Simulated assay, not measured.
Amino acid sequence: MKIYTKTGDRGETGLFGGGRVPKDHVRVDAYGEVDELNSTLGLVVLHLEAAGEGEMAAGLRQVQADLFTLGANLATPAPEDGGRENAFIPPLDAARIEALERWIDAADAELEPLASFILPGGAPAGAALHLARTVCRRAERRVVALSHEATVGADEIRYLNRLSDLLFTLARLANRRYGVADTAWVPNPR
C-alpha cells in the first residue's frame, strides 16, 4: 500500500465515520494539535529514557496511546453532527483522568511548594516537558474551539486540562531530580 493517496491534493481530508472537510477545518485543527502534542511527547520520552527516567517515560507512552484515542475521537464526527458510529474507536476512559490526577499528586509530593511563577527550562527532559505543556495547552484551546461548533466529549477537554497540569509537574520533578532549581519569574520593574 502506498503512503500517498492523492485524495488530499485539493486541500480536503477524510474523517473517520465518513465525510470530507477542508484541511483547515476546526476539527482537523483540533486533532492535528493533539497529534503534534503526541509527537512532542515522543521527543520527551527520548529525553527521559536518556536521563534514566524509565518509569516516567513509560507513563508518558500510555499518555501517547490516550492521545491517539482522543485524536481518533476528534476525527470522528458524532452522529448528531452528521457522522456515523465507529465501533473501532473506543471512547477515552474517564479513569485515565483519575490516573493523571494520582500521578500529579505523587509527583507533587516530591516537590517544594511553588512560591512564585517559574520560567520554563532546566535540564533537557524538564525543558522538553515544559514545551510539551505549552503544546498541550494549545491543543486544549483548539478542542474547546471545536466544542463550540460540534459535539466534543467533556472527558476530552478534561483530559487535556489535567495533562497540562501533569506535564508542568513532571517538568519540575525532572529538573529537581537532576539538581536544577526552578527559576522564579521576577517581573521587570516599572
Score class of each variant (00 low, 15 high):
24 D>G: 08
82 G>Q: 09
16 F>D: 02
97 I>W: 11
67 L>T: 12
42 G>C: 12
7 T>R: 12
116 S>I: 10
44 V>T: 02
90 P>I: 07
103 W>T: 12
57 A>I: 09
139 A>Q: 00
116 S>E: 15
83 G>H: 00
11 G>H: 07
29 D>Y: 10
97 I>Y: 09
86 N>D: 12
159 Y>D: 07
37 L>G: 01
76 T>A: 07
167 L>W: 01
66 D>T: 11
184 A>Y: 13
158 R>M: 06
70 L>A: 08
185 W>G: 08
184 A>E: 15
157 I>P: 03
134 T>A: 03
14 G>I: 02
85 E>S: 08
167 L>Q: 00
127 A>P: 05
23 K>H: 15
126 G>A: 11
21 V>A: 05
181 A>F: 07
77 P>Q: 01
39 S>N: 13
34 V>K: 01
132 A>N: 02
91 P>M: 11
98 E>R: 08
46 L>H: 14
145 A>Q: 06
87 A>M: 11
32 G>C: 10
89 I>H: 03
21 V>M: 05
17 G>W: 04
164 S>W: 01
183 T>Q: 15
75 A>F: 05
39 S>V: 10
81 D>K: 01
14 G>W: 01
121 G>D: 06
103 W>Y: 10
47 H>S: 14
106 A>K: 12
167 L>M: 01
175 N>V: 06
151 T>P: 11
175 N>E: 11
35 D>I: 03
108 D>P: 10
171 A>W: 04
20 R>T: 08
158 R>P: 03
82 G>Y: 07
157 I>H: 06
157 I>L: 06
85 E>D: 13
53 E>I: 04
112 E>G: 09
177 R>V: 14
139 A>T: 00
187 P>T: 14
20 R>N: 10
65 A>Y: 11
107 A>I: 06
83 G>P: 00
131 L>I: 14
80 E>C: 10
177 R>L: 15
155 D>E: 15
83 G>I: 00
7 T>Y: 09
117 F>N: 13
21 V>H: 02
127 A>V: 05
78 A>H: 05
122 G>I: 09
148 H>V: 05
134 T>W: 00
109 A>Y: 09
23 K>P: 14
